[in-house]
Computed example of a mutant assay.
Amino acid sequence: MPADTDPFVVGATGRRLYVDPDDERAHQLVRNDGTLTPGSNRLWDAVLALQPWDVVVDIGANYGEMVLGASIPADARIICFEPSPRVLPYLRRSITESGLPIDLREVAVGAAVTEASFVMDTVWSGRSGLADTHRTDSEHALEAVVVPVRTLDSELALSEGDAVCVKVDVEGAEFDVLEGARALTASSRPWAIMMEVLHMDPFEKARLAADYRMHVMDRRTGDLVVVPPASADVLTELLAGEWLHSQDAVLTSREAA
Rank of each mutant, 00 (worst) to 15 (best):
E65T: 15
E65I: 02
E65W: 00
M66W: 13
M66I: 10
V67T: 14
L68F: 04
A70C: 10
A70V: 01
A70M: 03
A70R: 10
S71H: 06
S71F: 07
S71M: 06
S71K: 12
I72F: 10
I72R: 01
P73W: 04
P73G: 03
P73D: 00
P73N: 06
A74I: 03
A74Q: 11
A74C: 00
A74D: 15
D75V: 01
D75H: 11
D75S: 12
A76Q: 06
A76G: 05
R77H: 09
R77Q: 11
R77E: 12
R77F: 04
I78F: 02
I78Q: 12
I78Y: 09
I79C: 02
I79Y: 01
I79A: 04
I79F: 02
I79H: 08
C80K: 13
C80D: 08
C80I: 02
C80V: 11
F81P: 07
F81E: 03
E82H: 11
E82Y: 14
E82S: 13
E82W: 12
E82R: 11
P83R: 05
P83N: 14
P83K: 00
S84M: 05
S84E: 12
P85H: 08
P85W: 04
P85F: 00
R86E: 14
V87L: 04
V87G: 10
V87E: 08
V87R: 09
L88D: 11
L88K: 05
L88N: 14
P89C: 08
P89R: 05
Y90C: 09
L91F: 06
L91D: 09
L91R: 02
L91C: 07
L91G: 04
L91K: 05
R92A: 13
R92E: 15
R92H: 15
R93G: 06
R93N: 13
R93Y: 06
R93Q: 15
R93T: 10
S94V: 03
I95S: 03
I95D: 00
I95W: 04
I95K: 02
T96M: 09
T96P: 02
T96Q: 15
T96N: 14
E97Y: 08
E97G: 07
S98M: 05
S98E: 11
S98T: 02
G99Q: 13
G99H: 12
G99D: 12
L100C: 03
L100G: 07
L100P: 05
L100N: 11
